[in-house]
Amino acid sequence: MYRWDFGWVWTFRAALLDALWVTIELNLLILVFGTIAGFLVWRARASRFRLLRLSAVAYIDLLRTLPVLVLLVWFFYCVPILLGGIRLGPMVSAVIVLSLNLSAFTAEIIRAGIDGVPVGHVESARACGLSAHQTLRRIVLPIAFRNMVPPMVGQYINSVKLSVLASIIAVPELLQKTVDISSRVYRPLEFYTVLAALFLLLLLPGTILSRRLEAGEHNRRLTTSG
């Protein structure tokens, strides 16, 4: 019978809290940069210039196809060589790669949200004399935003889960610290249990919010079409 002993975890609480903070910091940066980049990629994808449009599609397809882990390792080791020796550091590399990954999905969510705006709302706006820009700003984006929020929350949750991959390039985040400490004190079960609990605490509110938003969206659609 295995004897659980969480005393070791308590001993290393300061290190784990530091790692938790790194995880939060890493994810906040990814969320901000990934969303901004996603918006820019969507603008390119919806551009009137063919070359820009095709580049955006290629970018999205490439990032949605490549495994994040492969990209992370490639970026961390190959980009310094390509840049002539400039090292970006584990944290910066992780933020860049995970933001790029998030941006590809964000761009697609924005596109789907905007495509989901009924053309009748756009035509009504144009018929009332609103310019294309006013229609986008005052009608299309606010309606699309409501379509986008539930999948976006889901994508953010996914992105946080993917962020543990940053441990592979030694970003001192939760998984990396857990592996490091637990291998030193030979208590992997306790440390991984606490790791799972921490991620649960971190993401459960988001998951519940996502489900509520989806249910709300579903009800709204029923009442709108009824």
Binding site: P118, G120, H121, S124, A125, A127, I139, I143
Partner: peptide
Amino acid sequence: FQHAELWP
């Protein structure tokens, strides 16, 4: 337009 809607 036919089936014109209010902005939701």
